[in-house]
């Protein structure tokens, strides 16, 4: 709001005071929201770090096991065994609310299965393959957990950034401009009052 656009009237001053009050209360609320979001973010950050390191470990183990299984069974045999598997892990995406931010909640069906439930024959395959399957089942479970936490973190970060921008805009742009306009009107009104008094004195004299 440029100063030259402000009309120096009492009604405008009252209107500006109302706007400043509203902007200040909005600023206070948004600051509280930003602090709350940052607290939630810190809680999730530690979980995310742990989950990510577990995920990396699980990937390392799974890669190693599949390497062994490939060398024992051969690539084609493993591919044909993969076709025999029956159950597909299903996931269900729900949402939950963290301080107004909607984050996903992922529930999955059982990924880990017993040897008999897997669907391939146990007599014609080696234990290396069983270990590889087990390692990948664990890895998939970790992926599902990581997906939930990392998405929640991403969404929280987006909202923190947005709230920070709003807080800064109110703090450094909107409120100072309103205060400046208010001061301008007050000074102008005082000046008009002085002019009026002087005019009245001159008429009297």
């Amino acid at each position: 709001m440029a100063i030259r656009d402000v009309k120096p009237t009492r009604s405008e001053l009252i209107e500006l005071k109302k706007k400043t009050k509203l902007a200040e209360s909005g600023h206070k609320l948004l600051k509280m929201k930003r602090d709350g979001l940052i607290l939630e973010f810190f809680e999730l950050l530690n979980k995310a770090k742990n989950v990510r390191s577990e995920l990396d470990d699980a990937y390392g183990v799974a890669s190693e096991k599949i390497g062994f299984a490939k060398s024992v069974e051969g690539d084609v045999a493993i591919r044909s065994i993969a076709f025999a598997l029956k159950d597909v892990p299903q996931i269900k995406l729900e949402s939950k609310n963290i301080m107004g931010v909607v984050v996903p909640k992922i529930e999955s069906s059982q990924v880990r299965k017993s040897l008999c439930e897997r669907g391939y024959g146990i007599l014609g395959t080696s234990s290396c393959l069983d270990e590889a399957v087990e390692a990948y089942e664990t890895f998939v479970e970790k992926i599902i957990v990581a997906a939930e936490i990392e998405t929640a973190i991403k969404k929280l970060l987006d909202d923190i950034e947005q709230t920070k921008r709003r807080v800064n805009a109110l703090e450094f742009k909107v409120i100072p401009e309103l205060s400046e306009a208010e001061r301008f009107i007050e000074l102008r009104l005082e000046e008009m009052e002085r002019e009026n008094t002087f005019r009245l004195k001159r008429i009297k004299a």
């Binding site: 799974a62 493993i78 993969a82 990924v111 590889a132 990948y136 089942e137 998939v140």
Partner: peptide, 18 residues
């Protein structure tokens, strides 16, 4: 469902996980 996109070596293990 889960989906995996990648090279043959990368996707093979996921096939084993169902």
């Amino acid at each position: 469902e889960l989906a995996v996109v990648g090279r043959g070596d990368f996707t093979l293990g996921f096939k084993l996980a169902g």
